[in-house]
Design a protein around this nucleic acid. Structure first.
Lengths: 242, 242
DNA sequence: TAGACTTACTGTCACTCTGACAGGAAGACC
DNA sequence: GGTCTTCCTGTCAGAGTGACAGTAAGTCTA
């Protein structure tokens, strides 16, 4: 505050998206192959610069969601994940990224032929493996997004966002098992899910078959927070003990 | 992507701080009275613009923490809270704020005579009441910060950040009661806290008195996450049921 | 020095929730 | 009609929680 007309340094804002969905009982994220420098040819999260001076951040996220993934704002969970603003994260200068986490139900087909040169659903395990180098700090952002989803499955009804408008309890269990990466006991899962009032509500007498006994259909209930939380079997908790 | 030399709109970045502490068993936040326009004279969260082009975001938070609150980086929890970037939140133009949540142990005295015209610890209940109008969207940021602290007390060892290097179990219970705003049973609290391995560890045979029987001293343990979580009596959970 | 008082701490008991099993119900396929 | 698959309902022991009583170890007061 020494000078009177000191001007703060301007920065450029990007919005990056961690879009998660389930495909064949496996957690996938949408990645694009970058068509321009920097990191041309590398895999990256979909995203882009703020459109104009007056664009709201979440509106920008919705816009990118539509442009790069063909996803409308309906039936889609979208929440802010965090800011990533290390000074050297982008060689073009000071670019700060606002990351959003989107949860989408299973979609017809991988989107392509849109703005991004190529968009493909990639298993997160593969995307986070050592040999797949993501652009910028997108590996960190993706890791944080998956962690956030794992945590929110414990205490919120977020899991239903992975499903369509109606779903069976088995499908919901698939979500938990895929995101957490651990098997769950179906019987205890049935009991728990049905005991939490307002989590899922029956969706008519309709049923759909898949080889065995037809399953009842449910749809998301009004409850958004789970008390008590859904318990996740500890696998990483013990290494934090030491 | 119609033009080849389209330039993204630059924005200005501020770092705002929600600094929480306990004073007389009551949750307080540090607020300053703004000395300049806009919102001159109104109460606001401490914060300021990014210092220079190469400044890291968390470093900027630490800098503001030192300038406006006199708090060093030691013995202080600091984490990112979120981004607040509504287009009309600042009349000066497009100013996007990165909010950080800081938890500080009880400090000697309210800081003043530093950069800000006036800094004072304010009970959060009072700061969030209708008659105290905070500048910008700082009421929302403060609300989010308090909510974040409430949630993290359930599943992490964050409560120890409110205490000094050593503390008694009663002091720790004070933290939970003040942040959650509900009374807890001391006996159950003792049992729970001591049963979670690595949460708190005895700090020597020393004791300090406060009128009654001397209490054992503890210090934070290596455990950062609590499994199973500390249970919060439901008060707002039932209104989410409807 | 013997209370009274304050705070710290240890147990106990009933209840709920969870994890780990077995077994029946309802369709499709052969 | 059997067999397969998937869906769904119970049962039981152990862990964890909420509610409550009682003891321990200091200070203060008379």
């Amino acid at each position: 505050m020494s000078g009177d007309h000191w001007v703060p340094p301007p920065v450029l804002l990007t919005v990056d998206l961690v879009i998660l969905t389930l495909r064949e009982s496996c957690l996938h994220a949408l990645l694009i192959e970058r068509g321009i420098e920097p990191h041309q040819g590398a895999l990256a999260l979909p995203g882009g610069f703020l459109g104009h001076e007056k664009e709201d951040l979440m509106m920008a996220a919705h816009r990118e969601l539509a442009e790069e993934a063909g996803l409308g704002p309906d039936q889609l969970h979208l929440e802010q994940l965090g800011v990533y603003g290390a000074p050297d994260r982008d060689p073009r200068g000071r670019v700060v990224s606002v990351a959003y986490l989107a949860i989408a139900p299973r979609l017809p087909e991988p989107v392509a032929g849109t703005d991004a040169s190529q968009a493909c659903w990639t298993p997160v395990e593969q995307a986070l493996s050592v040999d797949s180098q993501l652009a910028f700090d997108h590996e960190q952002i993706l890791t944080d997004g998956v962690d956030r989803a794992r945590e929110k499955l414990e205490r919120s009804a977020l899991a239903t966002a992975f499903c369509g408008p109606t779903f069976t309890i088995s499908e919901l269990q698939d979500v938990y098992e895929a995101v957490w990466g651990v098997p769950l006991d179906a019987r205890n899962f049935y009991r728990k899910v049905q005991s939490v009032d307002g989590f899922i509500v029956p969706a008519g007498p309709s049923r759909k078959t898949d080889g065995g006994r037809p399953a009842r259909l449910f749809r998301p209930g009004p409850r958004t927070t789970l008390h008590p939380p859904m318990m996740r079997p500890l696998s990483e908790a013990d290494r934090e003990t030491a």
